[in-house]
Design a protein around this nucleic acid. Structure first.
Length: 408
RNA sequence: GGGUCCGUACCCGAGAGGCCAAAGGGAUCUGGCUGUAAUCCAGAUGCGCAAGCUACGGGGGUUCGAAUCCCUCCGGGCCCA
């Protein structure tokens, strides 16, 4: 068994830093003092294939436990994904097929590698279908008998949906119980999750106690705001930065977050030590670092984290080329258009080059002054171009869409 | 099983026979500004060169004319049992 740090006080401080809930710190301290390698549970439901920075907040916390010698018990919720966690959702999630779930799970695992330590003595990977799929009706009845309808309905999102007449599938009400069962099965000492998981995680304590185990310590991490600076980062809101996205995309998106969000991003997404975060944030606050520079640092850091050292510098250089110097990106798509279709209106060519979704939209973009051909702004919405005019030229729409036309 | 209400564009949501390609908000996009794909300000947002076409859960009907009225089917909420 690996050695575990015995300085419980220091460990407690590091581990509780940046958490929203810790239930409860005394229990955690006791566990840390025991010198045992703790089993730290974190469950993910592979309902979608992309991990974004919001997901990494809790993963960084889990990594801290690993770095202190503890064991991350990563539960792939292949069974629960099929039920659909209703957390924070206003509607029932459509069920996924087993194949979709498996596919997502593999992508998840690949992406999680960027944050977690995958050494065998630091990570245990399990699938909850291994125990949940085996339960029979008697097991289910026993499980559901351990709580009450009133207790389940305390959960805010259930209460809200019920009040507003939004449907709640009966299966969704069971979700907290399933997640709690996971805690019993993996004998979790600690469970991590976002703040929205608090209810589910506490259910784990209840079920563990009922099973005669010491209840797990529950710790929650903040939900990261997305690019808009207000709503929580999520794929469905489209305000996310995926960790598998190209570095240039990550860099650009990070440059577009509201300035006020920077301290939070430094604290929650970089994996930096609390000290380093504090120094950087302080420097930003007293003007020692200009906001742009801080944002660039953040953007480089994230790109490096997920694409290897140097990725951030490269992304930054390209960003400057394109957005500061206004040059064409070094790598831009080519679109082939048959010569027979010419001459055609530029508006139509933009659509053929997939820069706009319709001729009409192309016309609109020209009228708004957002279209350039070979670097020249076009003002005539009815402009006709010949094959010779168009061949090999770079079309640009707005600040972020380019294509080179090839006549064939 | 009975009753009742609802289903509108990417999302929320107004609309009550013609003035509706459909108010308003969100979201997104374009332009200007700039330290940024930030903020702020302005504008745009079904398709078609156009005549026009398609669109208000699906289908059918009434009418000169339907998102708006009727029938039916599908989906959903609530109440009663």
């Amino acid at each position: 068994m690996p050695t575990v740090t015995n300085d419980a006080d220091d460990a407690l401080q590091v581990l509780t830093a940046g958490t929203v809930h810790c239930i409860d710190p005394d229990e955690l301290h006791k566990l840390l003092t025991s010198g045992r390698q703790l089993r730290v549970k974190f469950g993910i439901d592979p309902t979608a294939s992309d991990i974004h920075l919001g997901h990494t907040v809790v993963l960084h916390k889990l990594r801290q436990f690993q770095d202190l010698g503890h064991l991350a018990v990563l539960i792939i919720g292949d069974f629960t994904a099929r039920v659909g966690d209703p957390t924070g959702r206003s509607a029932t999630r459509p069920p996924l097929s087993a194949a979709e779930v498996e596919d997502h799970a593999q992508t998840y695992i690949d992406q999680v590698r960027a944050v977690l330590d995958f050494s065998p003595d630091r990570l245990e990977l399990v699938h909850n279908a291994d125990w949940l799929a085996r339960m029979d009706m008697a097991d289910v009845l026993r499980l559901t008998g351990r709580t009450t309808v009133a207790r389940i309905m305390e959960r805010d999102d259930f209460a809200t949906r019920f009040r507003d007449g939004v449907p709640i599938a009966l299966s969704e009400l069971l979700y907290p119980l399933l997640q709690g069962t996971d805690s019993v099965e993996v004998r979790a000492d600690v469970e991590l999750g976002g703040t929205d998981q608090l209810f589910n995680n506490l259910m784990g304590r209840q079920l563990q106690s009922a099973a005669g185990m010491d209840p797990q310590v529950v710790m929650t991490t903040p939900l990261l705001e997305g690019l808009d600076g207000e709503k929580k980062m999520s794929k469905s809101l489209g305000n996310y930065i995926g960790i598998a996205e190209p570095p240039g995309e990550q860099f650009g998106k990070l440059m577009s977050i509201p300035d006020e969000l920077m301290p939070r991003y430094f604290a929650l997404t970089t994996g930096w030590s609390p000290d380093r975060v504090e120094q950087t944030v302080a420097a930003l606050a007293d003007g020692a670092i200009a906001p742009v520079e801080a944002k660039r640092l953040l953007a480089r850091t994230i790109a490096d984290l997920y694409h290897g050292p140097g990725a951030g510098d490269a992304a930054e250089a390209e960003f400057d080329r394109v957005f500061k110097a206004g040059q064409v990106p070094s790598d831009l798509p080519e679109r082939e258009v048959p010569a027979a279709e010419f001459p055609m209106r530029l508006a139509r060519l933009l659509a053929r080059a997939e820069l706009v979704s319709s001729n009409k939209e192309g016309r609109r973009k020209i009228e708004q002054g957002g279209v350039k051909i070979a670097g020249e702004k076009v003002t005539d919405p009815d402009l006709e171009v010949s094959a010779a005019d168009a061949d090999g030229q770079v079309l640009q729409v707005g600040k972020r869409a380019w294509a080179r036309v090839r006549i064939r």
